[in-house]
Design a protein around this nucleic acid. Sequence first.
DNA 1: GTACTTAATCGAATTTATACGATACAACGA
DNA 2: TCGTTGTATCGTATAAATTCGATTAAGTAC
Lengths: 110, 110
Amino acid sequence: MLTKATEFDTELKELADQAKALSHPARLTILRFLAAQDTCICGEIVEALPLAQATVSRHLKVLLEAGLIDVTQRGTSSCYCVAPDAVGKLHLRLRGFFNEVEEGGRTAAC
Amino acid sequence: MLTKATEFDTELKELADQAKALSHPARLTILRFLAAQDTCICGEIVEALPLAQATVSRHLKVLLEAGLIDVTQRGTSSCYCVAPDAVGKLHLRLRGFFNEVEEGGRTAAC
DNA sequence: GTACTTAATCGAATTTATACGATACAACGA
DNA sequence: TCGTTGTATCGTATAAATTCGATTAAGTAC
């Protein structure tokens, strides 16, 4: 019937937003780094990345806003870590999306 | 030892690029739509999205460049479909990344 | 208190993404 | 051949993302 949609599906909008949080190598590097470290002090993250401190801080903020990491203060230091629940949830969501796409893909007509 | 990296890991750069292809609801909608349809004519995609034809065409180009869809010409029509291999590979890659992050997350110190 | 360290934020520059109307272009039908 | 249809691309406007130096603010050490 080809009716024009007036907006996007909410679920897909949310998934797109979280995918955006993963769409920069700095942020992927941060997530992997935090997962590999016992400690997770901001300064160490800055040292591990080829970016200025201000820029790293901004990437950390993006990850925080996406809920994928948490932060706690230790004196003047900020201690970041992976938020396992949110990461697990995103993983699940992505798996669901991919399963949907891969299922259909097998029967595509072109 | 806190050595400053001079650039990002190539694997993570590529993953970030593909995540970027997934970071817009229009593109997720297109992928899901193509997976659900037998036919996959451009015009039908345009009708399914709340966007102008030119904009949809651009999103399709992004997905093509990411390798996630293929296109074949049928007369004046363009017939798009999911590229199952590339999608499967991305799915695998993402699973690998998430497993890495979730593994470490369980032992995080903060 | 003063000096130092750590990290967030501001300000500003640059780049990239998103969007759409208009146009071009190729295939098709009359 | 001529108009129509389906898509890609161009031009352009706007918004968002990325980056970094400079500054601020808050804790620590003396």
